[in-house]
């Protein structure tokens, strides 16, 4: 998994309904522990998916394996992104080609300016797409405009990446990065957690604005609140490293009312994944 000079693949135009992300029977472990035990999931352009499940069921692990976190070893199965083997790419190449992960716990990086970080990453993605790079001035204009989407104060540009940001500020910074990188597949891991009511609306609006007929979104969440604002096409429930059940938005409502026990008892017999 080394970073290559030549771009792995150019971005061809996408039609609504194109298969963007295809996960087949994915098994992954950390050290000796198997955490993902056969996850299968297909995500098409124009779709919004929600992934729910108890704490520790493996949702973040799935998202990190897709993004290429080195702590996890894939022991079986595959992930294809637009028909290409994603597992063969370094994390930076996955990001450049349009896969985005909004972290459940965004990382603080002391001493690295948020502005420079955003500029370098935005330009890495632009270069991959064959767009011209933005110099510091052009980027600053661009980032200020984009910050308006998440109503973030430009003062955050001057600070170190996520350092001392409140929980909600970190999440907004994640959505800002997503807006700058314009991913084709965005996985947002509990981006709604820790947000106050106004911030939740702002973030939900931001995510909706970025969800296009040619992109796809996977929202990992514990709460119906977010799904009230963004109606998912599919709702998946994860348990013990597998997707146990798939339904539509009503499944999320049922979970909100009844919890997870009934699903685990029924054991996913009525899965309706397309």
């Amino acid at each position: 998994m080394t970073s290559t000079e030549t771009t792995p693949f150019r971005e061809a135009p996408i039609q609504p309904g194109d298969l963007l992300l295809s996960i087949e029977n994915l098994h992954a472990c950390v050290e000796e522990n198997e955490i993902l035990r056969g996850v299968s999931l297909q995500i098409r352009a124009g779709e919004i998916h929600a992934l729910m499940g108890r704490n520790g069921s493996g949702k973040s692990t799935l998202s990190k394996v897709v993004a290429g976190h080195p702590a996890y070893t894939v022991t079986a199965g595959s992930i294809h992104y637009r028909g290409q083997d994603l597992l063969g790419l370094a994390p930076e190449d996955r990001a450049r080609s349009g896969v985005f992960l909004g972290f459940q716990y965004p990382v603080e990086i002391p001493g690295v300016s948020n502005l420079e970080f955003l500029r370098v990453s935005c330009n890495a993605r632009r270069q991959h797409r064959g767009q011209e790079e933005l110099d510091t001035f052009a980027f600053e204009d661009h980032v200020r405009e984009t910050m308006a989407i998440v109503q973030m104060d430009p003062a955050f540009l001057e600070r170190s990446v996520n350092e001392g940001f409140s929980g909600g500020e970190k999440k907004r910074n994640e959505v800002l990065q997503m807006a700058l990188l314009e991913p084709l597949v965005a996985i947002l891991d509990e981006t709604d957690s820790g947000l106050d009511i106004d911030a939740l609306r702002i973030v939900a609006n931001g995510v909706k604005k970025l969800a296009l007929p040619t992109t796809a979104t996977l929202l990992i969440t514990h709460y119906q609140r977010l799904l009230d604002a963004i109606t998912p096409d599919f709702v998946h429930v994860m348990a013990a490293g597998r997707i146990l059940r798939t339904g539509d938005k009503d499944l999320a409502m049922a979970l909100e009312q009844r919890g997870y026990d009934w699903i685990e008892e029924a054991d996913g017999s009525d899965t309706l994944q397309p």
Partner: peptide, 24 residues
């Protein structure tokens, strides 16, 4: 990993982190 997940290559990410350390 956080930097890489934003499209920043490993070498460049490493340089950014070293600089960040010095900046303090």
């Amino acid at each position: 990993f956080y930097l890489q997940s934003r499209g920043i290559g490993r070498d460049q990410a490493s340089r950014l982190l070293q600089r960040g350390f010095c900046e303090e």
